Computed example of a mutant assay.
Amino acid sequence: MLPRLTLAFREIGSIARGSDAFRPRLVVSVPPSMAMGWLSERLAGFVASHGAVDISLRGDDDPVPFDRELIDIRLSFGPHYREHPSEEIVRDAVYPVCAPELTAKTDSLAGLPLIHTDWGPTGASFPSWRTWFEAAGIEPGRAVQRGLSANSSRAALDLAISGLGVALAQGIYCAGALEEGRLVRANALSIALRQPYCLTIPERSARRDLVAAFRNWLIEECRRSVGSPVLG
């Protein structure tokens, strides 16, 4: 029966691929903060240029189960997956940003309310406010321990846009708000992140044209944000 069943399933697959109902599927995994706003706001541009595609967008912390969840492409902060082909695509930095009206209240960043970010499992790799003040040669006193705290980069950025304080925001997240004038840089000093953003694509997915197209598009979007003129 096996040869007949094999032919039958091949015929069914051929019919499905030739019908209008067939749409390619892509499973994309990114850090949670990126899934909540940055990437979800941009996916329409990919679909518009590459046609209808079923995309499963996942916000995951590392490590991710590539094979169990059939993940096609993973964007992560730092290299995590030696068992799959990975590449470094861009290195970001953090910038002190706040709402425009907040900077009019003081000429010293130390006098502004601070927004702290709990970076999660990779927190040791991200600069804290204490690190930033040390690099700036400023003694913040107890102010560095006070203020609001959020457990995601996106949430901290939203708090800053609302005028509740100044946040240390990654360029990839804050570039758009800076370009639109919803945020301003509260100080010129930025601190480069210790690790780059990396893309990991398992070999089973690397041969797919759709995955290659999404890879190229995602790299371009990441580099455009990190390389925004407002961050220079």
Rank of each mutant, 00 (worst) to 15 (best):
R4Y: 05
T6E: 13
T6P: 00
A8H: 01
G13F: 05
S14Y: 04
I15W: 06
A16E: 13
A16T: 07
S19F: 09
R23E: 13
P24W: 02
V30W: 07
P31M: 09
P31F: 12
M34G: 03
A35Q: 15
M36I: 04
L39D: 09
S40Y: 07
S40E: 14
R42Y: 08
A44F: 04
A44N: 12
V47H: 04
A48I: 02
A48E: 14
G51P: 06
G51M: 04
G51Y: 05
G51K: 03
L57K: 12
L57E: 13
R58C: 11
D61W: 15
P63D: 11
P63I: 07
P65E: 08
I71S: 09
D72H: 14
R74Q: 10
S76G: 15
R82I: 01
S86C: 03
I89K: 10
I89R: 10
V94S: 02
Y95T: 01
C98S: 02
A99P: 05
P100R: 07
P100A: 09
E101A: 12
T106L: 00
T106G: 00
S108N: 08
I115F: 03
I115P: 03
W119E: 08
T122R: 15
P127C: 04
W129I: 06
R130Y: 09
T131F: 07
A135D: 15
A135S: 15
I138T: 06
P140Q: 08
A143W: 02
V144P: 06
V144W: 11
A150I: 02
S153V: 10
S153G: 15
L157T: 07
G163R: 10
V166I: 03
V166C: 08
C174H: 07
A175P: 04
L178V: 09
L178G: 06
E179Q: 13
R194I: 05
R194C: 11
Q195G: 02
C198E: 10
I201E: 01
P202N: 13
R208L: 13
D209G: 10
D209E: 15
R215D: 01
L218N: 04
E221Q: 15
C222T: 03
S225F: 08
G227V: 02
P229W: 03
